[in-house]
Design a protein around this nucleic acid. Structure first.
Length: 803
DNA sequence: AGCACGCCGACT
DNA sequence: GTCGGCGTGCTC
């Protein structure tokens, strides 16, 4: 008797393994790995969704097996590749396999449960029961259930005549359209046309159309009607059995993609060399990784497009990941105008229905190229020939909540599975990637020249401590004001960048630029309002808020920051005639607002764009000749060891926005730390020099890429309980790790209390700890019982943000 | 997650 | 004596 091994939709540690079910004989043909099934689970009347992992001939379970209730899919929704990947990913990210299976699918395929009232066996014909159920077999319990019924339900539940069944509801709906299908051969159609009555004009028109488009076979009725073919004519042909009327599923097409219209661009020698190397790897089916380090404007996108083309020519498919933020119409058009309707785009703006349809289109093989943000890494492409990750340094490739996966790890896995290369591209590679390239793990491809040989913009650092330059009015220095004046008079455009909505919780001296740092960890201390003290998020070191700068003894030490709104106001006061646009979380929260603002700026309906990070990436506005960074320091002073890296990346990226076309660009960076290497090297656009210095610092502080990092966090309603648990975890870690490992904390997180819970974190830095992974899994299952007492314990492998 | 079993306190 | 509190453990 064959049994199905099923992962059930019950996300707990104890149910995180396959359960076996008997397959009813009538379902034997459809139950195969990758299909979703509905199975009874637990003691009560509860039915849950499950994924069939495997079908085996015999069971090794000693108890009595339950039967699969029904299959949800006639064909598998997950391939062998995805099933295999899910167990690897669950293990890597310390999450449940069911959660990993779920993220691979569009939302609509996630189970929704309905509760309904059904008769207890033997009471199907009880008069009270049939009255309640209105002679049906069940009554759904939804929100609009009549109040008068509730009492009756309660009573019958108590007398055990009815019970509550939880079962799975399938949400995936497709738009169905009516269509006709030709049933006979072409010859037959021609004969019929000859024998038609003269006045049957509409039928003749339809037949002629069918004959000339015979190959296509299936036609939507609505499109025929719009050509002036009448419904009776269609009925008439159906009656004489020439055609069938059928239902077809119409897939929504969210992005209106153009036909392929653009041709390959001519390549520079550097680009050509890159394309050759990658194409070679595609042809050889090498699962290797390239790192393209190319200065802004060096034409990385064209390399992506030409190598995708090569993969397609080989009959394979291609996946391109980009940060959500740069998934702009500009970007999408660039790809779709080369590959036309072979492209599917997955981004967060899609409705669940649209997303589901795009997924279907990928799954059934009607597209070969997928462009999308993080979760697109699970696109069900078969026969992958190439994977591209643009802006590979972006932290957003890592998911911040469960399952905490990094799309980059997933691409490595898929690359090995499909034997295809991965291309990482960035002007400012992450230190990890660049270090791997240095060691020869990745192949480094450098693009040092800008496309069309445009000069890099001229970058000027403005020392905000210098009172001659500083704050003529609030946050705008004289130097920036002068430049703004100039570009406005030349009718050019400017971008002003602020960070993190500009507010900060670190201490800085406005006189000398001093920032209060942790004596042990080389990161800035963060202000904690509740205790009114400064704390380190790494080791928990604490000290008082200073009112005098320990460096220059000035009293101008304090918290500082401005918001985009404030800066916009200052600019409006300064330049009443200039039109400004503000782009931050407030102005872009509505769907499509982002694109609309950019469009407005692109069409030069505004002179100055003021915004946060989101304006820094990949945008290409030829008329922008000035970029101003209002406060370079806020990024620098994050309580995160990647602060310097992020600062360097951001300034370099945003500087690349200036002077993309013929006009020469300028960049002004306002800072209280003009001598900081991240800022100085970014101004020179000198990645290699920054890399060397930063690697040294990382080496000194025992940080990535010299050490691996794992972050454990504990939360509980009671601060004491959370802290106690954190210490107990730490003790266990100390016992199971070698001397070489560094364990920091427990320390409170930035927002110590969110959702009425206290958070503590432990950071583990290590090099070689063979048992660590296994030990963490054990800790997770040991502490499982604690989660019922209000604890939650999360493990983040290689976290991107520590706060 | 849900649900049942089970072992202690305050009620008819 | 019993109703019900929620701590503990299992679900194919």
């Amino acid at each position: 008797m064959p049994v199905a091994k099923v992962i059930v939709d019950v996300p707990t540690m104890q149910t995180n393994r396959p359960f076996e079910y008997e397959i009813p004989t009538e379902l034997l043909a459809v139950v195969e790995p990758g299909v979703r099934v509905e199975v009874p689970f637990g003691r009560g009347k509860r039915q849950v969704q499950g994924f069939v992992l495997d079908v085996t001939e015999t069971s090794d379970y000693s108890g009595k097996l339950k039967e699969i209730v029904r299959v949800i899919d006639l064909n598998p929704v997950l391939s062998k590749e995805m099933l295999e990947m899910s167990s690897w990913l669950a293990d890597l990210t310390y999450s449940f396999q069911i959660s990993c299976l779920q993220i691979m699918l569009p939302n609509l395929l996630r189970a929704k449960y309905i509760r309904s009232v059904v008769p207890v066996q033997g009471f199907e014909n009880d008069p009270e029961v049939t009255k309640l159920l209105d002679n049906k077999t069940s009554l759904e319990l939804n929100n609009d259930i009549d109040n008068s019924l509730i009492e009756e339900i309660q009573r019958l539940l108590e007398s055990k005549k009815i019970e509550i069944l939880t079962s799975v509801k399938n949400r995936a709906k497709q738009i169905k359209r009516q269509a006709i299908q030709i049933k006979v051969d072409k010859h037959h159609l021609l004969e019929t046309e000859d024998s038609l009555k003269k006045n049957a004009t509409s039928q003749r028109k339809l037949l002629e159309f069918l004959i000339s488009n015979y190959e296509k076979n299936t036609f939507e009725i609505s499109s025929l009607e719009s050509m002036g073919i009448s419904r009776p004519a269609i009925k008439a042909l159906q009656k004489i059995k020439l055609i069938d009327i059928i239902e077809v599923t119409k897939l929504r097409k969210p992005t209106d993609l153009k036909n392929a219209t653009t041709q390959k661009l001519e390549l520079t020698n550097e680009q050509l060399n890159a394309v050759k190397q990658i194409n070679n790897s595609i042809n050889q089916q090498n699962a290797e990784t390239f790192l393209i380090q190319g200065v802004t404007g060096s034409g990385k996108t064209e390399i992506y497009l030409q190598t995708i083309d090569e993969a397609l020519k080989e009959g394979r498919t291609a996946l391109m990941l980009v940060p959500e933020i740069s998934l702009t119409p500009q970007m999408v058009n660039r790809v779709s105008s080369r590959f036309g309707d072979q492209v599917a785009v997955l981004h967060s703006g899609l409705s669940s229905g649209e997303r589901y349809d795009e997924w279907t289109r990928i799954e059934n093989g009607s597209v070969n190229v997928v462009v999308g943000a993080r979760s697109a890494v699970f696109a069900p492409l078969k026969n992958l020939g190439l994977i591209i990750i643009d802006e590979e340094h972006e932290a957003s490739y890592k998911q911040d909540d469960n399952p905490r996966y990094n799309a980059k790890d997933v691409t490595q896995w898929r690359s090995k599975y499909h034997h295809c290369p991965v291309v990482l591209g960035s002007a400012t590679p992450s230190l990890e990637s660049r270090a791997r390239a240095q060691k020869g793990v990745y192949k480094l491809i450098e693009l040092k020249r800008r496309f069309n040989d445009h000069d890099l913009p001229e970058v000027k650092i403005v020392d905000m401590r210098d009172s001659d330059n500083a704050a003529v009015s609030g946050d705008i220095s004289n130097a920036l004001k002068t430049q703004l004046d100039e570009i406005l008079s030349r009718k050019e455009q400017a971008i002003l960048l602020l960070n993190r909505r500009g507010y900060s919780s670190f201490l800085m001296c406005r006189e000398c630029g001093f920032v209060l740092k942790c004596p042990n960890c080389e990161v800035s201390l963060t202000y904690h309002k509740d205790i009114q003290r400064m704390k380190c998020h790494y080791c928990g070191h604490e000290e008082n808020v200073l009112d005098e700068c320990p460096n220059c003894h000035s009293d101008k030490i304090g918290f500082y920051g401005t918001g985009t709104q404030n800066v916009e106001q200052q600019i409006n006061d300064m330049f009443p005639d200039a039109k400004t646009l503000r782009m931050d979380v407030d102005t872009t929260s509505k769907k499509g607002a982002h694109a609309k603002l950019l469009k407005e700026f692109e069409t030069q309906n505004a002179d100055i764009l003021i915004g946060t990070q989101m304006i820094a990436k990949g945008l290409d506005f030829p008329n922008v000749t000035l970029v101003g960074v209002i406060n370079a320091d806020t990024i620098l002073s994050l309580s995160d060891y990647r602060a310097s890296e992020r600062t360097f990346q951001l300034i370099t990226q945003v500087s690349g926005r200036s002077g993309r076309a013929e006009k020469k660009g300028r960049v002004i960076i306002q800072t209280y730390n003009p001598d900081h290497y991240a800022i100085k090297e970014a101004a020179k656009q000198d990645y290699d020099s920054f890399y060397k210095k930063e690697m040294y610092i990382r080496h000194q502080g025992n940080y990535t890429p010299y050490y691996f990092t794992t972050l454990l966090s504990v939360s509980h309603e009671s601060e004491g309980q959370a802290l106690k648990m954190a210490y107990s975890l730490k003790r266990q870690l100390v016992d199971s790790l070698s001397e070489e490992a560094i364990i920091l904390g427990p320390s409170p997180t930035m927002i110590a209390r969110k959702q009425n819970k206290y958070y503590y974190q432990i950071i583990v830095k290590y090099k070689h700890e063979d048992n660590f992974h296994k030990r963490l899994l054990e800790i997770l299952s040991d502490t499982q019982a604690e989660t019922k007492k209000g604890f939650s314990i999360a493990i983040d492998n290689e976290p991107q943000h520590i706060d």
